[in-house]
Write a protein that binds this DNA or RNA. Structure first.
Length: 474
DNA sequence: ATGTAC
C-alpha cells in the first residue's frame, strides 16, 4: 500500500520515509492510478529516492512499469558532485529512442497496392528481429572511433541521410565524451553488423496518417498537416549498448558497489569516480551508436519510399529524434538557482520548453517535439515540451504496458492477430509471430490517457494524434 | 531491451 497524496493536477506525492533522500512524485490521473499495478514500480521509485545525491523528487511518469532496478518511466536527477550514475537508471537499451519524419503527401493518396509495395520494401530494406544485422556495412574499429566523435553525422557523412537531419536530432545526434577505449571488444563485435537494424520487442518502423491536430500553429511550424503521411522509427543501440550495460553492471558488482543497496540492480558509481566516468564514456558511445542506427534506418526508409512510391529523399523531412533511455548533464533551476545535474531518464523523454538555449531556432520558438508512441493499432502522439522544472524538463515516452509479454502471448494464442490488426486498418509485417502476439494493442494502456495526464500536469501540450497503417516489427 | 540460458 502506498500513501499517494494529490498535490497538483495529475501529480501525486509519495512522501519521504525511511532512507529516502527526497519524496517520490507520480504523474498520473486518478483513473490511471486506479488501473495501474503500482506495487512494484512504486517500490522502485522509493529505492531510487535513496540513492546518493538525488535532487528534487524520484519521479514516475504515467507510463511507469517495472524495470531493471529503476522503473521504466522514471526520472532521477543527481548532483554532479555528490551524486551517482547508475546503468540501471539508463536501461539496457542505451539511447533507445524515437524519430518522426513527415512526408509531403496525403496518406489517402497512396493506393492499397502502393501501400503493400511500401510495406514490403520497408521490410526488405530494414533488418528486423532478434540478433539480426546484415546491415550494409560492417563497422571497422576506425568507424567506431568516428561514431564516438561524430555521432549521427558519421552516418550522414557515409551517405545515409541529409545534412539537415542533424539539426532535428536531440543534442544534434552527438553525446560528448564518448570513448571507444571504454567499450569492450565483445560490445564492438555484437554491434558490428547491426547499424540500421530495428531489433525486436517493441521496436518498429511505422507509417500512417496525421489524424487530429490540437495545436494547429505548432503543427504548421513543424510541417504536420491533417491527413498527411508520417513515419515513426523506434530503436536503440542494439547488442552494442546492451553489452556495455552488462559489462558495467558486472564491473560495478565485482567492485562491491552494490553493497548496502536495497536492490543490487540499483548498483551505481559516483559520477566523478573513475568507474563513473568509464560508464559515462561508454554510455555516450552507445548513445552515438543509437543515433547512427536511427539515422541509417531513416535512410533505408527513404530508399523504400523512393523504390515503392517514387518519393524523393528531400520530401521526407525529419521532425525530431528523441532519446528515452539516457543520462544527461543539464542545467536546471533548483531552489531558484541554475545548477548542473545528471538527469537519468529511463523510459522518459526530455521536454525542453520554448526559449531553451540548447534547442535549435525552430524549437526555441515552439518548445521541443516530444514523441510518444502508443501501440501498433491505436495511436501515437506528438506533443510540445513545456520545460517543467519539477520533472527536470521530462515527459512520458509511451503508453506503458498493461499486461506482460507472456500474458499477451497467452491471450492471443490460437487467434488470428494479423486479421484483427487488419480489421483495425493496420497491416503488420514482422520477423516473428511471437513478437506480434506480445505487442498486440491490448497489451498496452491507452496512450490517449497517458498524454492527457502529462498535459494536465503541465509537462507538455498535445500537438497532434497519429493513426498507424503500416507497421514493420522485429 | 538482449547472440530471450556466454
Amino acid at each position: 500500500m502506498f500513501n499517494l497524496k494529490k498535490i497538483n493536477p495529475a501529480t501525486f506525492l509519495l512522501p519521504k520515509e525511511g532512507k529516502m533522500q527526497v519524496p517520490g512524485l507520480v504523474i498520473a490521473t486518478e483513473g490511471l492510478i486506479r488501473d495501474m499495478d503500482l506495487e512494484e514500480p512504486l517500490k522502485q521509485v522509493k529505492n531510487v529516492a535513496e540513492l546518493p545525491g538525488i535532487l528534487g523528487y524520484s519521479i514516475a511518469m504515467p507510463d511507469i512499469h517495472w524495470g531493471y532496478g529503476f522503473p521504466i518511466g522514471g526520472v532521477a536527477a543527481m548532483d554532479v558532485r555528490s551524486g551517482v550514475i547508475s546503468p540501471g537508471g539508463v536501461g539496457y537499451d542505451i539511447n533507445c529512442g524515437v524519430r518522426l519524419a513527415t512526408v509531403d503527401i496525403p496518406f489517402q493518396s497512396i493506393s492499397q497496392g502502393a501501400r503493400q509495395r511500401l510495406l514490403d520494401a520497408l521490410f526488405r530494406h530494414i533488418p528486423s528481429g532478434m540478433g539480426k544485422g546484415q546491415s550494409r556495412q560492417t563497422l571497422s574499429d576506425g568507424d567506431y572511433k568516428r561514431i564516438a566523435k561524430e555521432g549521427a553525422l558519421f552516418a550522414i557523412n557515409q551517405g545515409y541521410g541529409l545534412e539537415e537531419d542533424v539539426m532535428h536530432t536531440e543534442s544534434r545526434g552527438l553525446i560528448q565524451g564518448a570513448d571507444m577505449a571504454a567499450v569492450s571488444e565483445t560490445a564492438k563485435e555484437r554491434g558490428r553488423g547491426q547499424l540500421g537494424s530495428i531489433g525486436s520487442g517493441n521496436h518498429f518502423v511505422e507509417v500512417g496518417s496525421v489524424d487530429t491536430l490540437y495545436l494547429p500553429d505548432v503543427a504548421e511550424a513543424w510541417n504536420i498537416k491533417k491527413g498527411s503521411t508520417y513515419i515513426l522509427i523506434h530503436s536503440g543501440s542494439r547488442g552494442f549498448g546492451h553489452q556495455i550495460c552488462q559489462d558495467t553492471l558486472d564491473l560495478y558488482i565485482k567492485k562491491g558497489f552494490a553493497q548496502g543497496l536495497k536492490d543490487r540492480q540499483l548498483v551505481a558509481a559516483p559520477i566523478e569516480s573513475a568507474e563513473g566516468k568509464h560508464y559515462l564514456a561508454a554510455m555516450a558511445a552507445a548513445a552515438n551508436f543509437a543515433f547512427c542506427n536511427r539515422q541509417v534506418i531513416l535512410h533505408e526508409v527513404r530508399e523504400a519510399f523512393l523504390e515503392a512510391l517514387g518519393i524523393e529523399q528531400h520530401q521526407i523531412k525529419l521532425l525530431y529524434d528523441v532519446c528515452h533511455n539516457i543520462a544527461k548533464f543539464e542545467k536546471h533551476l533548483i531552489d531558484g538557482k541554475l545548477k548542473e545535474v545528471c538527469v537519468h531518464r529511463k523510459g522518459a523523454t526530455r521536454a525542453f520548453g520554448k526559449g531553451h538555449p540548447e534547442l535549435p531556432p525552430l524549437f526555441r520558438q515552439t518548445g521541443q517535439p516530444v514523441l510518444v508512441p502508443g501501440d501498433m493499432g491505436r495511436a501515437s502522439h506528438i506533443l510540445v515540451g513545456k520545460g517543467n522544472p519539477t520533472t527536470f524538463c521530462s515527459c512520458c515516452h509511451g503508453a506503458g504496458r498493461a499486461r506482460s509479454r507472456i500474458q499477451s502471448e497467452k491471450a492471443w494464442k490460437g487467434k488470428d492477430p494479423l486479421q484483427y490488426m487488419s480489421s483495425k486498418g493496420v497491416s503488420v509485417k514482422a520477423s516473428s509471430m511471437k513478437t506480434i502476439l506480445e505487442e498486440m494493442p491490448d497489451a498496452y494502456k491507452n496512450v490517449d490517457e497517458v498524454v492527457l495526464a502529462v498535459q494536465e500536469a503541465g509537462l507538455a501540450d498535445m500537438v497532434a494524434k497519429l493513426k498507424p497503417a503500416l507497421v514493420v516489427k522485429g
